[in-house]
């Protein structure tokens, strides 16, 4: 839960005063809170996401490389939680377009 997963911002919206967005994690899309990085990101940027919150911006090459490394090191637990949360019928995991 400390590693964070890089993903690409697909869209940004205001959700009753909270900046939210849809992020693509290697084909898996879900809602992420962008409030903490709202001043420095736009659609198309890459961010590191911890438990549903973007914490810091990264450049594209770095994001791609990090995602591959995480995959190789079997450190993508958070994507599994997303899947489990989705199976339980919760919001958040949408099928890739």
């Amino acid at each position: 839960m400390c590693l964070g997963i890089p993903g690409k911002i697909q869209s940004i919206r205001d959700d009753a005063g909270l900046v939210m967005g849809v992020i693509d994690f290697g084909g898996v899309q879900r809602d992420v809170c962008l409030q903490y990085v709202a001043d420095e990101v736009q659609v198309g940027d890459y961010v590191i996401v911890h438990v549903g919150f973007a914490i810091t911006r990264v450049d594209e090459d770095e994001a791609r490389r990090t995602f591959e490394v995480l995959k190789e090191m079997s450190q993508l637990d958070e994507l599994e939680w997303m899947a489990e949360a989705a199976e339980q019928g919760m919001r958040g995991l949408e099928k890739p377009a």
Partner: peptide
């Protein structure tokens, strides 16, 4: 007991 990805869930 439910697994969530984010505390906002």
């Amino acid at each position: 007991v439910k697994v969530v990805y984010s505390p906002l869930d």
